[in-house]
């Protein structure tokens, strides 16, 4: 069957898959972000724990996605929740790492000056450290998002839907059309997320920190 006709015949289902895919990404990266940033901040306040925590998080990162989804399937069963659980855990590490690095790399001159002129610990964090680390943190979110778009294609395996469904079906039935319908939009989705967050990163970088042309 011609790809165009296949697409036209299935486009409502494709749109649903795409929506599900986006939902999986946004929810898991969202949850990952609100977990990872505070955790990263806490780590900068308790540096002795940082190496251990980052090492564990790094180890989790090396577990293949297929394996993690397998765990989720066996432990939590089929569906959206197990998939979101796995994706959220995956999304944490890059954001955690970048939050920690970003804040740690803020020059002590700034924090010293901030303290010295009478900022409270919270003011130092919100007015100085986070703005200066913002670019790095957003870059962590971007890396995370690109990963999650990729892992979310696997979520189809445990019945969470998304563009992966089409690829799985295509692989199972050796149907090129289905593969393309799943693979191309998921790739485009990854580019779109990456570009959007890249733009956001530039937009949110304080002007005084942008590279001078």
């Amino acid at each position: 069957m011609n790809l165009t006709t296949l697409f036209l015949a299935n486009w409502p289902a494709i749109a649903r898959s795409l929506a599900t895919h986006i939902m999986l990404v946004v929810v898991s990266v969202g949850l990952g972000t609100i977990t990872a940033i505070p955790l990263g901040i806490v780590l900068t306040r308790h540096r002795r724990f940082a190496p251990a925590v980052l090492a564990v998080a790094g180890m989790i990162q090396t577990i293949p996605g297929l394996v993690m989804l397998g765990f989720a399937l066996v432990l939590l069963g089929i569906g959206t929740v197990p998939a979101l659980a796995v994706l959220t855990i995956y999304s944490i590490l890059p954001i955690l790492q970048n939050t920690y690095t970003g804040i740690s790399e803020v020059s002590p001159a700034y924090t010293d000056a901030a303290k010295g002129i009478g900022m409270t610990a919270m003011q130092v964090l919100f007015k100085v450290e986070l703005p200066l680390a913002r670019e790095t943190i957003i870059s962590g979110i971007r890396i995370s998002t690109v990963y999650i778009v990729s892992w979310a294609t696997l979520a189809g395996m445990i019945g969470a839907g998304g563009m992966g469904d089409w690829i799985w079906t295509g692989l199972a039935t050796y149907n090129t059309g289905y593969i393309l319908i799943g693979a191309i939009p998921s790739a485009l989705l990854a580019f779109a997320f990456s570009a959007a967050l890249g733009g956001l990163q530039r937009l949110l970088t304080p002007r005084g920190l942008r590279r001078q042309p």
């Binding site: 996605g65 778009v149 990729s150 892992w151 979310a152 294609t153 696997l154 563009m163 992966g164 690829i167 295509g170 692989l171 593969i179 393309l180 799943g182 693979a183 191309i184 998921s186 790739a187 990854a190």
Partner: peptide, 8 residues
């Protein structure tokens, strides 16, 4: 995404 690349 890796699954997409492999499939393609």
């Amino acid at each position: 995404p890796s699954l997409a690349l492999l499939a393609l």
